[in-house]
Design a protein around this nucleic acid. Sequence first.
DNA 1: GAGTACGGATTGTTGAACAATCCGACAAGG
DNA 2: CCTTGTCGGATTGTTCAACAATCCGTACTC
Lengths: 241, 241
Amino acid sequence: MSGADLADALGPGTAALHRTTTAEQVAETLRRRITDGALPPGTRLREEAVTTALGVSRNTVREAFRLLAHQRLVGHALHRGVHVRTVSAGDVRELFATRRLVQPLGVEAALRDAELRERLRAQVMAARAAASAGDWTAVGTANMAFHLVMVSGCGSVHVTEMFEQLIAELRLAFLQMPDERALHEPYVAANDQLVELLDAGRRTAAITALTGYLDASERQLLAVLDHAPPPRPAPPRPAPP
Amino acid sequence: MSGADLADALGPGTAALHRTTTAEQVAETLRRRITDGALPPGTRLREEAVTTALGVSRNTVREAFRLLAHQRLVGHALHRGVHVRTVSAGDVRELFATRRLVQPLGVEAALRDAELRERLRAQVMAARAAASAGDWTAVGTANMAFHLVMVSGCGSVHVTEMFEQLIAELRLAFLQMPDERALHEPYVAANDQLVELLDAGRRTAAITALTGYLDASERQLLAVLDHAPPPRPAPPRPAPP
DNA sequence: GAGTACGGATTGTTGAACAATCCGACAAGG
DNA sequence: CCTTGTCGGATTGTTCAACAATCCGTACTC
């Protein structure tokens, strides 16, 4: 078997077995802790704390911080360290302005591509399953996946990547909300209905429905964030001796 | 004057005076060298070389590399170092697929916003000036700025940032082309004509013109890149003693 | 000529050190 | 009371030196 054939047989992804730097691994664990909610927005991340907690060197932790900052999961201030980002009302407005611009492109793709609509239905099913299990965080994840699948259908890796990042930011906003159920449950049926409109080829109705959902979701977030202005990032210091 | 008033008067941006880490400065100088063409695509960047050339530590250089990798100006392979990215024909197709999706959003914005059209005209003037000076690189820069201004008009920082990165990537592709003049000169008049269509409110004609320009530009790039397959990144080693 | 082992070169990671900066506290002054 | 200046601990920014892991060209074997 030639080398090329072997590579074909193994397929992509096999090559990248453990091919990650430790900095990336550190970033990955921190990312999970953040999206879990274990490290809520505003939490300060001291280099030394992460160093001792994960048993890696400080330089590696700093590289991991860079990676997370690049994904906007943490903010970085010179000589002031990194902290889990808090999403402001203004940020939410930016996020939804972008969604209103970009997501119609996904609608166009879904109108053309039946196989894409099939994958959308799969996400609706996943959301429904999570909802009947009462796992509202999973419902939110499935709902976001629904929109991501739709946007990725437009066939631009750049747009898809941007939207992935946007969703990560949005998830941070979700973490700052009190009632997860009210935040995610309504959109399971909404997404289902959207797929039906897409299947029926009702372009205008689909766009209208989508923007309606976006408006509603934005309102929900702003209702909380506008009345709870930027919480001072004031983590308590250890008591002096 | 109250504290709040003072903050208003100073405004945002004043706080960030010289607040940059040295890693960011290193990244900035490398970025300039790359977009200048001083470091052509494919050039390998050894850590030690940059360390001694710029007089900073290796860790700092590595942080700078991360920043550049994040902007896709350099590629990073594990244990294989960093090299200035070479843009393949496939990459160009991706870039233009995205442009065809996103730039119509900018057209809509320009149709609505007269002040935006004014800024577009300014970019056309700049391109014209550079053209009469024979500075084709500057013409290319102004042309790219034209499109960036248009896209930024749609009011999404996410989309604008994505497009900025896209343009940086496109500039890398330009560096791999032989005839800069043929690459940039035609689009000065084209952009001028596009602004006229926008001023006249001829939406459909503007979109058609824009996509036509995109098609032409993509063809030019692919004509070269398709016939000059990925140059093996094989920088000569220093002769062994 | 295909496959394989060696060795230099480069990157990945660590640990310690020092300078620069931030932050809170405390005192002085209006 | 509020503002202003100063001090000291804590944290970050940066450098340096070292070692392990990996890549790559070369030479060697068959």
